[in-house]
Design a protein around this nucleic acid. Structure first.
Length: 619
RNA sequence: GCCGCCGUAGCUCAAUUGGCAGAGCAGCUGUUUUGUAAACAGCAGGUUACGGGUUCGAUUCCUGUCGGCGGCUCCA
C-alpha cells in the first residue's frame, strides 16, 4: 500500500508542535496486525501493539463473553486501540477499572509467547473462546496452514507480532476514550466498541505527551476562534455554516489577496461564477450520480427548472472554456476562482472549520494539451509549496490517491487511470519528492495528489490537492484547434493550491496558536497612550502607521496602561506602541513586542520596520 | 447517519443525597489620569438549549428534539 516511507518537508524550520513531537519520538511507520496493517520492528510501535493486547486481555477478564476484533498501534495520535463486541454499552467511566486490571496483568510479568498453530488448531482455539471475529480474519486474511498467534497468560490473539518480552515491559500507558467503530470499516457491518489508549516507554514520555495534549487543547481553533473573535457558528444559521467575524475576515482577506496576486503572477486568469447552476450541468459532469450523497436537494420551480447548489466549480469553468473556440496557442488556460462550494456533510462529521457545509476553495482548472500535462502538474505542486512556505505549513506529506477497486465509483478506462496515476507520480519524483499511495481515495474523475497536514492534535487533513482529469473533458466534449488544424481534446488539472479558506484558517490558527505573523494579524499595532494627555500624540503615531497601510488601533480607554498591555498581549497583537510624555517629546514610541522585548524607537524607524515586515510577509 | 460524552449569564465555571440559581471576567454608571501583564465602587445580566414526563417541589431523575465535542464511515 505504501511506496515511500518518508514524509516530505517543505522547510527545515520545525514548528513548535513539530519540535514537541520530535522530542516525543513520534514516528512515522506503518503498524502490525492482521487486517490491514503491516508488521514493524519499531520498538515504540511494538510496545503499543503489546499494550493493545494487554487491553484486550483485561477486557476479556472483566467482561466475560467479550469478543475482540482488531487492535493495532496507531501513529497519529500516537497510541493504540482495540475494537470489542462487548454485548453492552460502556463509557469512559468504565476505563479506570480496565486500566487497573491492565496494570495488575502487567505486574504479573506474563510472557508474550509466539506460536504457529496448524490452521485447524487455531480455528478450534478461537472457536472454543467464541472469538467469531478472529475466525473471520483467519478465513479471509490468513493464507497457508500456519497461523501465527500470541499468547499472554490465558489470552490468545491472532497476530504476526512482534511483541515485547513480557507484560512487565509495559509501564507507561493510559486509556483515553471509547467510541464506536464499524467492523472492518464498513458501516453496514456491526458497530464495535473501540477503546483508545496511548503508551510510551517511560512515565516521563507519557507525562510529556499528556502535557502536549493539554497544550493542543489551548491551540484548538474552535477555542481560539471564540476567544479571539475570529469566527462564529450559530445554530440559527445552521451547523457547518461558519460566519467570519471582522478579525477573521481581515485575515482571510489578506490571505486571499496574497493568493490571487500570486496566481495572476503565475499566469492564472481569475474569474467569478455563481454558486448555483442547473441540475443538468451536474448530470452531465457525473456529479448528480456519483457525488449525490454530498449534494443538496435541487430547488424546483413551477416551470420545471431545477437549480442546484454547486458541490464543485469545475463545470462552471468548463462552460467558460467552451465560451469560445480555443486554439493550442491559448493553452494552457488556467482559470482560477475563490469558489464557494456547498456540500451536505452528514451531521456527525462536522467539525469546527475543518468540515463545514459551505466553504471557499482556492480553486483552479488548468486546460492543457497532453504534452503540457506534467509541467502543469508540477507548476501546481510548486505553487502549493510556495503557499505552504509563506503561510508556515512546515510539515506535511504527499498522498497519491488512486482509483477504487469498485468499478461503479469511477469514470473512464483503466488505461486512462494508470496513465494519470503514473503522471502524478512522475511529477513528484521529478521534483525529488516522496509520497504515500492511498488506494481508493481518488476523485471519481481521476487520481490526485493530496497534501496531508496535521492539526494541533495530530489529526490528519487534506489541505492542498492536485488532480488529473481525462473524464470531464470527454463528458463535455472539450476541444481545441491543434497546430495541424484538427480538433483535439484537452486534459484538465483540478487544483486547490492553498486548500479551502476554512480549513486553511483552522490550520493557521492552530499553527500559530493565534499569534499570527504580523502581515496576517488583524491588529498589527496597538497604540497605548499612558494618560489622556498623550492622546494627541497617539493619534499622530496611529496616522503615521496607517499612512503605511498598517492596521492600527488606539487604546484610548480610561484604563491603566498595565491593563491595556495585558489585553493586547492576550489578543496576541504583534506590537504595542506605548506613548507617554517622553515619547511625545522625542518623536519616539516605546515598542513592546510579543516576546515582551521593550525598546525605545524613533517613530519613523518603527513605521518602516513594521511596514517592511508586512511587505515581506515575514513570520 | 452510527457509538460514547456534554449543554447553567456574552465568556470561564459553582450550586450537599431533588429544596428560593451564584462568582470572576466582560457590559453599563460613577470615581481614578496612571511608565510596561488585571485601579475602586455600584448597577444590570438567566423560562438552567428546547419540548414532554415523574414529584408537594426538577439545573439535578426519566424521555424526545436541537446543538456541541471525541471517534467510525466519508472528505477540501
Amino acid at each position: 500500500m505504501r511506496v515511500a516511507p518518508h514524509a516530505a518537508t517543505s522547510s527545515n524550520k520545525a514548528s513548535p508542535i513539530q519540535a514537541q513531537l520530535m522530542r516525543l519520538h513520534i514516528l512515522d511507520d506503518p503498524m502490525p496486525e492482521f487486517g490491514d496493517h503491516e508488521a514493524t520492528d519499531d520498538p515504540l510501535q511494538v510496545l503499543r501493539h503489546s499494550t493493545a493486547h494487554l487491553l484486550a486481555a483485561a477486557v476479556t477478564e472483566l467482561y466475560p463473553g467479550a469478543k475482540y476484533a482488531i487492535g493495532p498501534p496507531i501513529e497519529n495520535p500516537p497510541g493504540f486501540y482495540y475494537d470489542f463486541d462487548l454485548g453492552k454499552p460502556i463509557n469512559e467511566a468504565d476505563l479506570p477499572a480496565i486500566e487497573s486490571r491492565m496494570r495488575r496483568l502487567a505486574q504479573a510479568d506474563l510472557p508474550f509467547v509466539h506460536e504457529t498453530l496448524p490452521r485447524e488448531q487455531a480455528i478450534e482455539e478461537f472457536r472454543k473462546r467464541g472469538q467469531d471475529y478472529k475466525l473471520e480474519l483467519i478465513a479471509d486474511k490468513v493464507e497457508g496452514n500456519g497461523v501465527s498467534v500470541y499468547r499472554t497468560g490465558d489470552f490468545l490473539d491472532l497476530c504476526l507480532g512482534p511483541h515485547v518480552k513480557s507484560t512487565r515491559d509495559l509501564k507507561a500507558f493510559k486509556l483515553q476514550r471509547v467510541s464506536g467503530a464499524y467492523w472492518r470499516g464498513d458501516e453496514k457491518k456491526p458497530q464495535l466498541t473501540r477503546i483508545y489508549g496511548t503508551a510510551w516507554q517511560t512515565q516521563k514520555e507519557l507525562d510529556d505527551y499528556l502535557k502536549f495534549l493539554e497544550e493542543a487543547e489551548k491551540r484548538d481553533h474552535k477555542k481560539l476562534g471564540k476567544d479571539l473573535k475570529l469566527f462564529l457558528v450559530d445554530d440559527r444559521v445552521g451547523p457547518g455554516l461558519p460566519m467570519w467575524l471582522p478579525d477573521g475576515a481581515t485575515i482571510r482577506r489578506e490571505i486571499e489577496r496574497f493568493i490571487v496576486d500570486e496566481e495572476i503572477a503565475r499566469g492564472y486568469k481569475h474569474v467569478r461564477t455563481p454558486d448555483v447552476a442547473r441540475l443538468d450541468l451536474y448530470r452531465q459532469s457525473g456529479h448528480a450520480k456519483l457525488y449525490a450523497d454530498y449534494m443538496y436537494p435541487p430547488m424546483k420551480f413551477e416551470d420545471g427548472e431545477e437549480l442546484e447548489l454547486r458541490p464543485v466549480a469545475c463545470p462552471h469553468h468548463i462552460v467558460i472554456y467552451q465560451s469560445e473556440l480555443r486554439s493550442y496557442r491559448d493553452l494552457p488556460l488556467r482559470l482560477a476562482e475563490l469558489a464557494g462550494y456547498w456540500r451536505y456533510e452528514r451531521s456527525g462529521v462536522l467539525a469546527g472549520l475543518n468540515r463545514v457545509r459551505h466553504f471557499t476553495l482556492n480553486d483552479a482548472h488548468v486546460f492543457c494539451t497532453p504534452e503540457q500535462l506534467i509541467e502543469e502538474v508540477k507548476g501546481a505542486i510548486e505553487l502549493a509549496l510556495y503557499f505552504s512556505k509563506v503561510l508556515g505549513i512546515d510539515e506535511f506529506y504527499y498522498e497519491v490517491a488512486t482509483r477504487d477497486d469498485v468499478k461503479e465509483k469511477w469514470l473512464g478506462t483503466v488505461e486512462q487511470w494508470e496513465e494519470a496515476q503514473a503522471d502524478l507520480m512522475e511529477a513528484l519524483e521529478s521534483m525529488g519528492q516522496t509520497y504515500k499511495v492511498g488506494v481508493g481515495n481518488a476523485a471519481f474523475y481521476g487520481p490526485k495528489i493530496d497534501f496531508q497536514v496535521y492539526d494541533a492534535h495530530r489529526r490528519e487533513f487534506t489541505n492542498s490537492t492536485v488532480q488529473i482529469d481525462f473524464q470531464l473533458p470527454q463528458r463535455f466534449d472539450l476541444e481545441y484547434v491543434a497546430e495541424d488544424g484538427t480538433r483535439k481534446r484537452p486534459v484538465m488539472v483540478h487544483r486547490g493550491a492553498a486548500g479551502s479558506m476554512e480549513r486553511l484558517f483552522s490550520y493557521l490558527i492552530e499553527r500559530y496558536a493565534g499569534a499570527f505573523p504580523t502581515w496576517l494579524h488583524p491588529t498589527q499595532v496597538v497604540v497605548i497612550p499612558i494618560t489622556d494627555a498623550h492622546h494627541e500624540y497617539a493619534t499622530e503615531v496611529a496616522s503615521r502607521l496607517r499612512a503605511a497601510r498598517l492596521r492600527v488601533e488606539i487604546d484610548g480607554r480610561p484604563e491603566k496602561m498595565q491593563k491595556k498591555i495585558r489585553e493586547a498581549h492576550s489578543r496576541k497583537v504583534p506590537y504595542m506602541a506605548i506613548v507617554g510624555q517622553r515619547e511625545a517629546d522625542a518623536e519616539q514610541v516605546n515598542v513592546r513586542d510579543r516576546q515582551n522585548r521593550e525598546v525605545a524607537t524613533p517613530l519613523e524607524t518603527f513605521v518602516s520596520m513594521v511596514a517592511a515586515e508586512v511587505a515581506e510577509r515575514r513570520r
